[in-house]
């Protein structure tokens, strides 16, 4: 379990990085290395060049504006978890990060790495879906912005082109007092979830749901927003039946099967975690009123 041979590069600026991306063939970007390094050691990837972007100074950071949160691609998961600003403006992020790997892996793992690797059960890409993220990418041919709906191309496949890198991710803030809920089920603490869900809810003054966002992850090859369920909720007042009906949408997803679980069990779990996430979101939204 030693990595195959590769040439190592560690650019110190975005310009140097773009130069390398323009020049090198079969290169891989190394962010936190929590997925790539094991994949190298298992020899399931064999790049000729490894470009370590850890020494580019301004790729990490959390910036809040009135409408947005902009997260540098190299922001460590532990820093996202520790950020008081994030906890105040988008508390579900801290909630979800408790399930991302372990203390040790979060100190290296980055949001950009997670969103580019795109494990189907990864929490951070799911949060990006929940917050209608935009991915700010750049390369030798210039910069572009990719909406989250276009980012997920399939299993372990993002919209990032071969010679591009991810600069930052822009999340749309929800108003203060929104409800949020996060629920996932994994066999062991820190494992990728068999199924997970996140929910955001905003209630109007008349106790009707003004806005809803629900994401389910670990179930299909990429995180999926439950658009129908969201529409079902908007304009309604809360009831157990309503939540159950919305959650039932998760149980209708085209779930994956693997060596551990059947698609049927995964669908069942999807419904359970979605209902639990929604229930928690309702509780917190009501608490905030």
């Amino acid at each position: 379990m030693k990595a195959p041979p590769f040439a190592y590069h560690d650019p110190r600026s975005r310009d140097d990085l773009i130069g390398l991306l323009a020049e090198l063939e079969n290169a891989k970007l190394l962010a936190g290395g929590q997925s790539l390094v094991p994949m190298l050691n298992f020899r399931v990837v064999a790049p000729d060049h490894l470009i370590d972007i850890n020494r580019i100074p301004d790729l990490a950071g959390i910036r809040l504006s009135a409408d947005d949160v902009v997260l540098g691609a190299m922001t460590r998961q532990c820093d996202l978890q520790a950020s008081a600003d994030l906890a105040a403006s988008a508390p579900i992020i801290r909630e979800a990060l408790a399930h991302v790997g372990h203390f040790q892996t979060r100190s290296r793992g980055t949001i950009g790495g997670s969103c580019c690797h795109l494990d189907p059960a990864a929490e951070l890409p799911a949060l990006c879906a929940l917050f209608d993220a935009e991915f700010d990418v750049a390369g030798p041919n210039g910069a572009r912005v990719v909406k989250v709906g276009d980012w997920f191309k399939g299993y372990l496949e993002s919209a990032l082109e071969e010679r591009e890198y991810l600069q930052s991710i822009r999340l749309r803030r929800w108003p203060a007092g929104h409800g949020y809920g996060f629920s996932e089920y994994a066999r062991r603490r820190g494992d990728f979830a068999i199924a997970g869900a996140g929910a955001l809810l905003e209630f109007a003054k008349d106790a009707r749901i003004r806005r809803a966002a629900i994401v389910v992850f670990g179930v299909e090859p990429a995180p999926v927003r439950l658009a129908e369920a969201e529409q079902m909720l908007v304009g309604q007042t809360f009831s157990e039946t309503l939540l159950a009906e919305a959650a039932a949408q998760a149980s209708a997803l085209d779930a994956m099967a693997d060596v551990h679980v059947s698609a049927a069990y995964r669908r069942r779990l999807a419904g359970v975690v979605t209902r639990r996430a929604l229930t928690e979101a309702v509780r917190l939204a009501r608490e905030a009123v």
Binding site: F42, R187, R188, R189, G190, D191, F192, V259, H260
Partner: peptide, 24 residues
């Protein structure tokens, strides 16, 4: 430790072989 009908191990990493940890 699972194997398929060809005798191929299916759970040959700690992602797939659920060795419990202290948290469990």
């Amino acid at each position: 430790m699972r194997h398929d009908e060809a005798g191929q191990p299916l759970t040959a990493t700690y992602a797939d072989y659920l060795l419990p940890g202290a948290a469990e």
